[in-house]
């Protein structure tokens, strides 16, 4: 195999021997067992696999694990701090922003990046900001409300 990958995932240092062809999402799910990050497509279209690499939202199915060498990675499992839900997690529950829950982790990670860049987005800005993430259950209505809720309470 032969590549030593050093990353910091959800605040924990990891060092693993990985095959250079392994996708970041497979490393996260299979090597680290962090199965909250999901795979919904093969074409970077759905956003279910979104994680943060050095603070920016990235579709982890479109990146090799080795490309993240040295990076700080945050997955959905790292969003809760000291047992407190992230405002987006609370917003999604409060506003019924999820149904089957499969797109939710990627949605939350993408929304977090959105709010990082714009703490008080308009409805339009939220909708455009979510263009990279598919949800097949909610019609996006309550996801928009969840982001607004988080922006107000964040």
């Amino acid at each position: 195999m032969g590549y030593t990958l050093k990353v910091n995932v959800n605040g924990k240092a990891q060092e693993d021997d990985v095959n250079p062809r392994v996708l970041l999402v497979d490393y996260i799910r299979e090597k680290l067992g962090l199965t909250g990050t999901h795979v919904g497509c093969d074409t970077s279209s759905c956003g279910a696999c979104t994680v943060h690499v050095d603070g920016k939202a990235v579709k982890s199915c479109t990146m090799f694990a080795v490309q993240a060498d040295g990076a700080d990675i945050t997955t959905i499992e790292g969003m809760c701090q000291n047992g407190e839900l992230h405002p987006l997690q609370a917003g999604f529950k409060e506003e019924h922003g999820l149904q089957c829950g499969f797109c939710t982790p990627g949605m939350i990670m993408a929304c977090a990046d959105l709010l990082e860049n714009n703490s008080n987005p308009s409805e339009d800005e939220i909708r455009h900001g979510l263009e990279g993430n598919f949800c097949r259950c909610t019609g996006y209505h309550n996801i928009v409300k969840a982001v607004q809720h988080a922006a107000e309470n964040g």
């Binding site: 909250g36 969003m79 839900l85 019924h96 829950g101």
Partner: peptide, 20 residues
């Protein structure tokens, strides 16, 4: 009533088939 199942989903702790 807010959904009970959301507690696991919003934390990425849902368990789908490929997670097993």
């Amino acid at each position: 009533i807010k959904r009970v199942e959301d507690n696991r989903f919003i934390k990425g702790e849902g368990k789908y088939t490929d997670d097993f």
